[in-house]
């Protein structure tokens, strides 16, 4: 019996090592490609052959090779300002959909949730482009940030709502008896208790905006205002002065873009497993 268990574990181990190396391989080759010079890359594109040694200075040179700092700044600005809006407004709305009791509440919530997931982004983006154009908001980040303050997305509201529902209503009732008003209860009692939901929603929103490609592509037309996502792609699409695409630098930029989410999500995996649990949630 014990021997059989041992064999099982060894087979399991081999299977997982094989599978996870497939998942890690692209990151490894990206890293190796990032260490080459552009001419070395074109001489031998095999990532495992570093003919000229490792050019670690690529990770610094990128800042002068492409407008990296500026694009990083715009990505951070867009991600932070939209995250603040999403967290503030989705938690507020979720309170109205969970702690407050009113007729038709849950029905209305699911109608909104179902409807908002079924409308394709592009169907709203085309008319919104015209609307924001008439506001004079094109070529600014306003179209990408302002809507975040009005509802913050049904899915984020859903996550907060699930969390608020688990908090005993007696906390709220006790506070009411002490004369606290609803905003005080929301801000000082419920929100601090919903810290895991707060973390999950803000991290997802931050990195969602961080990686957003289509939004900035549509609303930002001046290339001096591009965030990193559009900037990297333009770097690839428009070859440099010598007429070639500087792949090693693009790999460096991609690594810089990916490292933030990789570190943060590695740290919060367990919370995601608990926080994003759909089982029996449609009730």
């Amino acid at each position: 019996m014990n021997n059989k268990k041992k064999y099982k574990k060894i087979i399991w181990l081999i299977a997982l090592i094989a599978v996870s190396s497939v998942f890690v391989l692209p990151l490894l080759t990206t890293f190796l490609d990032a260490l080459k010079t552009t001419s070395e890359y074109y001489l031998n594109p095999n990532p495992f052959i570093l003919s000229g040694g490792a050019h670690w200075d690529n990770f610094i040179k990128i800042f002068s090779e492409m407008p990296f700092f500026r694009e990083l700044g715009y990505s951070t600005l867009y991600a932070s300002l939209s995250t603040i809006g999403v967290v503030l407004s989705s938690s507020l709305v979720a309170y109205g959909f969970s702690v407050m009791r009113w007729p038709g509440r849950d029905k209305l919530f699911f109608i909104f949730l179902a409807f908002s997931t079924m409308i394709p982004g592009i169907t709203l983006t085309l008319p919104l482009y015209q609307i924001f154009k008439s506001f004079g908001w094109l070529n600014t980040y306003l179209p990408l940030i302002v809507p975040a303050y009005f509802g913050g997305g049904m899915f984020n509201i859903f996550i907060f709502r699930q969390f608020f529902r688990q908090i005993p209503i007696s906390y709220v009732e006790a506070a009411r008896l002490d004369g606290a008003n609803e905003f005080y209860i929301f801000y000082r009692i419920m929100l601090p208790l919903a810290r895991p939901a707060l973390a999950v929603v803000s991290i997802f929103q931050f990195f969602g905006a961080w990686g957003d490609y289509m939004g900035p592509l549509i609303y930002i037309t001046d290339n001096h205002l591009y965030p990193l996502s559009v900037g990297i792609q333009m770097f690839e699409a428009v070859p440099n002065t010598s007429g070639v695409t500087p792949w090693p630098y693009i790999m460096v930029a991609s690594l810089y873009m990916a490292i933030g989410p990789i570190i943060v999500f590695a740290l919060i995996q367990k919370q995601i497993i608990q926080g994003l649990n759909f089982q029996g949630s449609i009730t």
Partner: peptide, 28 residues
């Protein structure tokens, strides 16, 4: 962790990585 992390790589970065990986001229 190793299996999960690629899913958080931004799509643009993912495309760049895979363009090289699947390059018919010398991609891995």
């Amino acid at each position: 962790t190793m299996i999960y992390l690629p899913s958080v790589v931004p799509t643009v970065a993912m495309v760049m990585v895979f363009l090289l990986l699947f390059s018919p001229t010398g991609g891995i």
